[in-house]
Computed example of a mutant assay.
Amino acid sequence: MVSRTGNNALQMLGGSRRRVLGVLREARRPIDVQEVVQRVGLHANTVRFHLDGLVEAGLAKRGAEDRTRPGRPRTTYAAAVLDDPSDQRGYRLLANMLTGYVATEVKDPAAAARRTGRDWGRYLAGRPTPAQNLDAHGATEQVVRRLADVGFAPEAVEHDGATQVLMRHCPFLETAERHSNVVCSLHLGLMQGMLAETGAPVHTDRLEPFVEPSLCIAYLAMDGTGKHDD
């Protein structure tokens, strides 16, 4: 189980280290350095550096493979368990019940989820002080930090002159697979609310779910208003 110190360390992770942690979580089994290298595309020495940092922070565990053949067993790494499994089952059940209700009983569940996400996004973002003037880059960094707080392993990247937020390790993956119109719309609204609250000239109106089995992408664009309509 990850301690309070480990949770604080999670909030401070850089983009590359979040990606490495996301790979460990997605694997759901101990894996070695080379498998991490293949999945993240970083140099082996860089991956080892990040893995050692995750172990020191209590976010990953180091072990050795079970080996029946002669030779030295490879070092393996696995993500540390964040919460007690019984707690996870309880929250997962609650999430499935609530999203199922919204999906079947609410008129236009995607729009309702976006509105709820925006309200909570504004709350989570925290309004800047009058002297604080965030630009698009600063607002994007703040959104990435808040998404990490929620449980994602996010990373902002530039692609074809535009900014994308790669959202790995969805904390509600199983629920999103069943009710993506609700969960993904909620996450889109969450980001919209965060960006609107910063007052920065950037917004997002598009989140592409499941580009890969464990990757969704939000697309950011420059905008002078920060306002959004259903």
Rank of each mutant, 00 (worst) to 15 (best):
H50P: 08
G53S: 12
E56G: 12
A57L: 09
G58R: 11
L59K: 03
L59Y: 04
A60S: 09
A64C: 08
E65H: 10
R67H: 13
R69Y: 12
G71E: 05
R72L: 14
R72E: 13
R72G: 08
Y77T: 01
Y77S: 04
A78T: 13
A80D: 06
A80N: 07
V81M: 15
V81R: 15
P85Y: 09
Q88T: 11
R89A: 10
R92Y: 09
R92L: 12
L93A: 12
L94S: 07
N96V: 04
V102Q: 00
E105S: 14
E105I: 02
V106I: 14
K107C: 01
K107L: 09
D108M: 06
A110Q: 01
A111P: 03
A113G: 07
A113H: 05
A113L: 09
R114M: 06
G117L: 00
Y123F: 14
L124G: 00
L124V: 04
P128M: 07
T129F: 03
P130D: 02
A131R: 12
A131W: 01
L134I: 03
D135L: 13
A136C: 10
V144Y: 05
R146T: 08
A148P: 05
F152H: 07
F152D: 00
F152P: 02
A153V: 11
A153L: 11
A153T: 15
E158M: 10
H159K: 12
T163K: 09
V165R: 00
L166D: 00
C170W: 02
L173F: 04
N181M: 15
